[in-house]
Structures are given as C-alpha cells and as structure tokens.
Write a protein that binds this DNA or RNA. Structure first.
Lengths: 232, 232
DNA sequence: CGCGCACTTGAGCACCTTCAATGGCGGTGG
DNA sequence: CCACCGCCATTGAAGGTGCTCAAGTGCGCG
C-alpha cells in the first residue's frame, strides 16, 4: 500500500494530546517535514518484530496492538495503543514487538534517530516523552492486573470495563454501549484465555444480566456494579 | 527504624549504573544533599500505596517488589527492582503501588518534586530517566510474557531462567546454581498461581531432572534445554 | 523443648482447555 | 443471483490442570 502523505498538523485530531504538543510550532513543522503520514488497513503490520527499529510513530486515528510471538507460534498481546499514543520502542536497538493495526488506522511515521535527536535538543519534548512512557508503564502494569484475575469472568469483566472507559470521550465517565475493538481471538490473547472461554464467558455475563451483546462486537453495560464486583 | 544517613556517592556500589550517573559531580553532590540514605529490613515497606507519592528512590543494595492489592486483599506483584533500579513512580500524582523490600536493602531517597525539578533543568538526567523508564517498560512486558504461559510448568521454568540470568554478573550468561530471592508465596503472586502449585511444579521439575533443589531456595539448573523448551 | 513459619504432599473438585460440530456473515466467482 | 468458501463466533462433551481444603514435615528461634 503506497499511501504515504505529508504530515499536516493543522487538521490532526490529536495535535493537542500527542507528544508533539510539547513542541513550538516551528519545531513541530521541522518534525513534520522529517516524517510522513500513512494509512493502515485493519490487520496490516505497522512495525515488524526483528526490524532494525528505525521508526517511531504517533497513532492519529484507529487502534493498534503490540505483540510478541512465541517460538511455537502463539501470539501474545502486550499492549494496546489508542490515538495519540506512541508506536515503536524509543531507544531500543531492535524492535522486539510487532505492531499491528486493529482497525483501519492512521499514523505519523518518523525516523527514530532524528526523533531522538530532536528530543535531545528540546527538553520540553524529552519531558513529555518521559510522561508518556510513564503512562505506558502504568498501562502495562494495569494489563498485568487484568491478566492476573484468577477467574475468566473477572478478566473479561475487567476488560469490558477498560474498553468502556477507553470508548468514552470523557476520561472520568464510562460509555454504556460501545463496540469491542478486538475479535474474540484477540481478547483471548490479551487475557491469556482461549477463544471458546471468552465466548462462553460473554454468554454467561449476558445470561446473568450484566451486559447485553449487540451483534458480535457490540456491548451494552446493564449492571455496572456486577461487573465491578467480578473485576475485583 | 530511624536509620537515615547522608548520601555518600563515593562508596555507592551502583554509582556508574544508576540514573545519577548522568549528572556531573557537582550536580550529583547537590542531589545527594537533597536526599538521604536508608536501610530497610526484609519485608519492610518502602513506599505505601495511597501515599501522596512524595518520594522517589534508587535501590543501591538488595531487591524490592512493587505490588498492588486488590479489594479482596489479594496481593499482586507487578515489578521486581534490582540494584540501580528506581523505586517510586515519577510524575504520578499518588502512589498506586506498594514497594516492599524483598531482602535487606538500601536505597537513596529523594523528594520527588525536587528530583523532577532537577530533571527539568538537566537534559542529560531527563534522557537517562527516559532510557530507564523504557527499560522498566520492557521488563513489564517481559513479565506479561511470563504470566501468559498457559501451563504452570512453563511459568515456573521461565521464572527460574529469568532469575538465573539476573543472578549472573555477566549479562549474557546464566548462573547454573543460585538462590531464588522470593518465597513460594511471592513466586505464586508473581506468576498468578497458588503456593501449592508452585511447590508441586518445582517438585515435578526436579523429578524430571531439569533442576535440583538445594534447601528451600537454592536451585541448580541441570537441564537448561528442558527448561527452555518448557518456557516456550 | 515447643512454637511459628514456610514448604511439601495428598484428595477432591471446579474451571478451563481441547476437540469437534454448527451457524452466521461477507466476499468471490460461476 | 446464488452457491461456495473462509472467517469468526457459538455451543457441546470430555478430559486435564490447577485450586481448595487439609494434614504433615523441616527449620529457626525464643
């Protein structure tokens, strides 16, 4: 897919939240000229594990997953990326993770070396990156919390609540009805369960009146307190 | 325990590896005067969850764990900290994690606000912190990998290998015989298993000839390839 | 010596996985 | 247009793994 395009910050939906926001307009213009903007179709690989890790990117639209692949071929999702989040591993000599678009997505791609050089020259950017990486670290630990619930119901309930939070525009409120951005298989990878268990657990949650399914990916939360209780 | 002492960088065993190494001697002296050095006994709490997150620290000796506590009282370890690692969450408004000494330990404690101010003023420190947080992020994702092995044998085998790597002075080599720095209960918390399952799995690994136990915490690796295969 | 603590071992059972079959949906090609 | 195929999701049955509950062992310490 040859759809590289120049970066235009003026119409960027995440211009105020992405790390670029730490830069002056001039510096941002310089950064924009260094990189390009690309679209990715659902399922497309953005960064492949084993690459020389030459790029880093900001997701401007859509959603992505970062995953490892075991020797035996089992894929494991270690992080989800939402708009304004960073793709790629700063200061890593080689990419150990594969980044894949979960939905049709767009991202600004930068050469990693020049991005790092700019961060060295602009303390405001470096500080912003520090905060961003700290946030990623918190999310990663949140994911550990998610996986470590003993029972499948708790894991799935916690995942639903996490997506309800992410789907809402206001950070403090949950969305009552939303679409799961993952397939059953991806949810299973994320939670350390099988597809069948995820599916059965959703059926059970619906049977218990906690949620209602609408189509294969739509979720409406009917009993928020019940989900909270299950999620521990 | 009232054992606060001034910080003396000259005899610090991790002076070259900790984040302080990014500072000039003058700046390091200023940082040292801002903080103090403390000893902690095994099991002692270094930072309690819910604290106003007023401190951050560098571990100079020993080992520590960072953990969350669920509403139902279940503790979950989300990270291990080795000497030269950072304790506490930079730029977090409140501590969400409890930090506990796993063995008798020592740390340099700094007021968080002044540490952050110094990082704003010294780009070299900010960059060093960025690298450090990136490393923590990688470790956190490694932990996710660890937990996500389906079978108990795989998780325990991977944990043993991880400690074999950590116990070795050379980063590329494993130690063939070493002590597990965790109790069975802590290993269980880390791996998302029960104490009994960890114990039984170690027995099974020993029965299969992969390891030999020496006392309750000593481990000798007899069949490295078998552990690798189990760890996936 | 006796107590506490951590570890080990055993028996039974709940839960999740595995294997297998079925249904729905979208895309492709006849 | 419809048949066919692939992919995803659901559901069922059987079996295994790890959890729960419970007892027993070894070690350090008062």
């Amino acid at each position: 897919m040859a759809n590289a395009a120049p970066i235009v910050c003026d119409t960027c939906p995440v211009a105020d939240r992405a790390v670029c926001a730490a830069l002056t307009p001039d510096d941002r213009g310089e950064l924009a000229r260094m990189g390009h903007h690309r679209r990715y179709a659902r399922g497309e690989t953005i960064v492949a594990a084993g690459d020389a890790s030459t790029v880093c990117a900001t997701l401007t639209r859509g959603a992505a997953k970062m995953s490892t692949i075991d020797r035996d071929g089992t894929e494991r999702i270690v992080a989800l990326v939402h708009p304004a989040g960073m793709l790629g591993q700063l200061f890593a000599p080689a990419a150990t993770l594969t980044v894949t678009a979960l939905t049709d997505s767009e991202a600004c791609i930068f050469p990693r070396s020049r991005f790092e050089a700019l961060s060295d020259a602009r303390p405001a950017l470096a500080k912003r990156l520090l905060v961003e990486v700290g946030r990623e670290l918190d999310e990663s630990r949140g994911l550990i919390d998610l996986i470590s619930k003993r029972q499948a119901k708790g894991r799935v309930a916690a995942l639903i609540l996490a997506f309800a939070r992410a789907a809402s525009p206001a950070p403090c409120h949950d969305e009552a009805a939303f679409d799961l951005p993952l397939t059953r298989g991806e949810m299973a990878q994320l939670l350390g369960l099988t597809i069948e268990t995820v599916s059965r657990t959703l059926t059970a949650l619906e049977g218990g009146g906690a949620i209602r399914r609408e189509g294969s990916h739509g979720i409406a939360i009917l009993d928020r307190a019940a989900l909270d209780a299950l999620a521990g």
